[in-house]
Design a binder for these strands. Structure first.
Lengths: 580, 580
DNA sequence: GGGAATATTCCC
DNA sequence: GGGAATATTCCC
């Protein structure tokens, strides 16, 4: 199959045809003219106006083709009059095709719009009728505007890219958001972790304190129990010989105790003599005593035993702070109870028939004393008063004591006195060899973490501040129980009382709930610690080392042992208790 | 300017030219043939082989053009022999141009490669020499392969898109990663938050316990102090009349105390008689006593005061667990000390000249007793032994007691006995009205959070389990101090002792450090709580309500007050202490 | 009118 | 050889 195609065409664009044989003279001339026009135009406007626009401009301007294509009347659009002939005869002279569609496609490509005539537009859409195209920058006589006409760059791709770009931007934006969120969360996580560690540390501290305190309480109560036992043995000794000496009172008390209740009856109020001033709060009457008053009182108390008129007994109680005698500020509290308790089955059975021969009364009508008046039932009262009342109940029981040998009694009293003083001295003598630097360090680290908490973000409740507790319950106790260290230090001569914080300061930290609310775990910590942020707990190490360690250190270490009783020790203790 | 271009060209592609005037017959024929070939080819292969490939195939196959373009010898490539003539004479018949460059551009566009001849390639690159092109699917006689030849789609855009797509995929991937990370972190954050809340709750609990315990300790020691004071007053009363009765021993002790130390000297070891069995641990000798032994001992103790041969004194101490007399299991410990302490300046000054008339000894060579041998200095010893020693020191002081009026002494002893028994009854009588359901609830919530901890991620240390402490220190104390509830319940007749956990179980939870290590805060919690995870703390509420509340509840509430002393109450207490 | 593939040209 | 702009064709 031999196919020979002879296209007789010209280069419509810039370059002259190379060695085209058999081109006739006319065509070569026309071609040269087109080339010249395009090149001239480009030179004239010094711009890269696309070949299509130059050719179109030339075509419309050319008067020779006005019967097929020409300017409109106003000169802002052009008309194609004979579409068929224009495509087949005119187009090939300028373009590489003879298709009106391709020509229109190019027009559209450069932003030309077909001018729609309202009258003819919809009705006839006449075939072979003239078609009109316009472009804002394609105007008669203004070829300088041509350079503003831009061919549409493939509409899809850039738009697509733009959309993609926008998507990408959004995605990147969200990534950045997520990243910053994550950083925030990381920071919070770190803060929480640090807080958690601090919490665990504090819990460890508190647990140790708890154990210490438990052991201490155990020992204290054990101590008291032992006193009771000693007392009981003495009671046994003194009660057996006097079984027949009965007035019915003793057995009554024993029955009361058998019912295993404590029933404190109304106390009697004694008159006050020689009292310089008094504070009255509820049932408590507190009297200021001068030194002479105390001496008078002591002399009165020193007097020989006198007859006790009342069925209920009263006893003088002198409270002394930290083993020091402060004559000018001595409080003497007096109360009376008629209650007695007996918990020991065997002893009570043995003592069932024993009687109380008489009641003792150490307080006279002219005694200088503080008096505590207890309400009946003694429930739900001020604990201080309660404790005082318990203490004062001691006086209510001193009945059958005269049946015991005087030597034995004095022996026992002295033994109690001695051991109590030992104990007291140990408590106030010296503090423990705790590592207070470590405590301070932990305090400062907690402060750092709290600063982090405040500086960074919400949700970290600044109220959730950690409070450094002293890891030694006895220390804390002393802090709470010695209101005025200077007074204490100045007055205590026998015990090396360590300086300590004021009671109020400590309480401000602890924020103890003032009501006996049982819902301990239900309360959010922030409520518990509302005001604890403001007050800073002063370092205790300086207080601890105020006085050099002396021989009393041995006692201190002993007490430390009391507080840090090992499980083995506790079990040994339990075994002891078990076998008693 | 009139430009007339007359392109004489043919439609190289499919469609026949429409109404092209002045096309000669030959050209129309050729055009028809090309169209036929292309359409025939498409029909034959039923595929859309691009026009360029069909035209090229036709051109190479056509024998008439073999002098310009033809197959190679092997038939897997084609040769363009006369490039100049081929471009100007042959190309226009098939394409809309007469440029060899455009032809080669199309070849490259479809993946054709120029065949480089090694001998001629670099050396001459001869002009007008034949050029050879090949394509794997452009082979002589195999037109069916043509459909495998694909025009390169604009390399830039799809690649660009592909790259963009890859980037987008990566970005989305990272976003997903970040999101999942964030979810994980959120979970951990939630876990940490819950843990934190639990920790805060526990800290609140522990702080309350701490406060409770502190108040309890305060009250206990206050109680003991008051006993001391009472004792001291009695001592004052009994000592003043006997100032001249001196043997020098008393002043020695007073001086020791003035140096504010506790110095316990070596105790004497007494012989053991009538002992059924003995446990020896360190310095402690624990003896099992039969009931008859105790009775014997009691009878011996009940005997009339005898002469005390030793300078140091010994006293019998009987420890009883929870107020119950267990005659078969009574432990009697005996120690001797020569130490006495006096912390009260005024009292000591007044008593400076007082003397110890004699020493008391309750232990005979044939006494059935437990004996505690204390080392000198009594430092760093077992706290149990320490406490025992303190208690036993009570015996060391019972000297001048016989100088006091017998009535007074008995009165005081009974008062102490009564108050102690009251206290004891209160401790064992009834527990507080705490909200134990709330406690249990918090326990279960903590278990939930711990399960979360284990199920989710690393870093959440499973050892960091929270332990529910009883919020009542006295409860905890009772738990720890009553090893065998059934024994206790069975034996204690007077006090309503509440059932409790065994001592060992409780200790397993607390994990108290067995060494007096002062670095409390430095230890990680996991070490503290190593074994505490496994054991579950049984609910205490059932134990608490074992017995209905009786009249003793009043005492219990009183003790509750003791434990929950309000700051105001503490200050009132402090004021009292201050003024004493 | 315009999307899309191919074609042609221009340029590196 | 190939990127890129423009041109042409095809198609919706």
């Amino acid at each position: 199959m031999a196919v020979v195609v002879t296209p007789l065409r010209t280069q419509a664009a810039v370059k002259p045809p190379k060695n085209t044989k058999k081109e006739n003279t006319q065509k070569q001339l026309l071609f040269s003219l087109v080339v010249f026009v395009v090149e001239f135009f480009k030179m004239k406007h010094n711009s890269n106006v696309p070949a299509f626009l130059v050719k179109l401009w030339t075509l419309v301007e050319d008067a020779d083709t006005n019967e097929f294509i020409c300017w409109s009347q106003e000169g802002n659009s052009f008309l194609v009059l004979d579409e068929q002939h224009f495509a087949k005869e005119i187009l090939p002279k300028f373009f590489k095709h003879n298709n009106m569609a391709s020509f229109i496609r190019q027009l559209n490509m450069y932003g030309f719009r077909k001018v729609m005539h309202i009258d003819t537009g919809i009705v006839k859409q006449e075939r072979d009728g003239p078609v009109e195209f316009q472009h804002p920058y394609f105007k008669h006589g203004q070829d300088n505007l041509l350079e503003n006409i831009k061919r549409k760059v493939s509409n899809t791709r850039p738009e697509d890219n733009k959309i993609r770009q926008e998507d990408l931007t959004k995605v990147l934006e969200s990534v950045h958001n997520v990243n910053s969120k994550q950083e925030n969360i990381d920071i919070r996580l770190g803060t929480l972790k640090r807080e958690n560690e601090a919490l665990w540390r504090e819990i460890a501290d508190l647990r140790k304190i708890h154990v210490h305190q438990q052991q201490l309480i155990k020992k204290l109560i054990h101590f008291i129990f032992t006193l009771v036992q000693n007392n009981r043995i003495l009671n046994l000794k003194r009660k057996r010989p006097v079984l027949m000496n009965s007035n019915g009172k003793k057995s009554k008390y024993i029955h009361q105790i058998y019912d295993d209740k404590v029933c404190v009856e109304q106390s009697s109020v004694n008159s006050l003599n020689g009292v310089k001033g008094s504070e009255i709060s509820d049932d408590v009457i507190i009297c200021d005593l001068t030194e002479s008053d105390v001496e008078v009182a002591a002399e009165i108390t020193e007097g020989s035993p006198r007859a006790y008129e009342q069925a209920d007994v009263e006893i003088v109680e002198v409270e002394l702070d930290s083993c020091a005698v402060l004559p000018a500020e001595t409080e003497v509290s007096t109360t009376s109870t008629d209650d007695m308790k007996q918990t020991e089955a065997g002893a009570s059975a043995a003592a069932d028939d024993s009687q109380r021969s008489s009641t003792l009364d150490n307080s006279g009508p002219n005694r200088s004393a503080l008096q505590l008046n207890k309400p009946s039932g003694l429930s739900l009262e001020d604990p201080v008063k309660m404790m005082d009342s318990i203490l004062n109940e001691n006086g209510a029981i001193s009945q059958n004591i005269n049946l015991l040998g005087k030597m034995e009694l004095m022996d026992y009293l002295d033994s109690i006195d001695c051991s109590l003083e030992d104990f007291q001295a140990m408590l106030y003598g010296k503090q423990f060899g705790m590592d207070f630097d470590a405590l301070e360090e932990s305090v400062s680290s907690k402060e750092n973490s709290s600063q982090l908490n405040r500086g960074k973000r919400e949700e970290v409740n600044p109220d959730k501040q950690l409070i450094q507790y002293t890891s030694c319950p006895l220390l804390a106790f002393l802090d709470g129980s010695i209101p005025h260290p200077e007074l204490d230090l100045g007055s205590s001569s026998s015990s090396s009382g360590s300086g300590s914080d004021s009671d109020s300061s400590y309480n401000a930290h602890l924020q103890p709930s003032s009501s006996p609310d049982a819902h301990v775990a239900a309360e959010p910590p922030s409520e518990l610690l509302d005001t604890s942020l403001e007050s800073k707990q002063p370092s205790r190490s300086s207080l601890i080392r105020l006085e050099p360690l002396t021989e009393a250190e041995a006692s201190a270490e002993t007490l430390l042992y009391l507080c840090e009783l090992s499980p083995a020790g506790a079990e040994a203790d339990a075994t002891l208790l078990d076998r008693v």
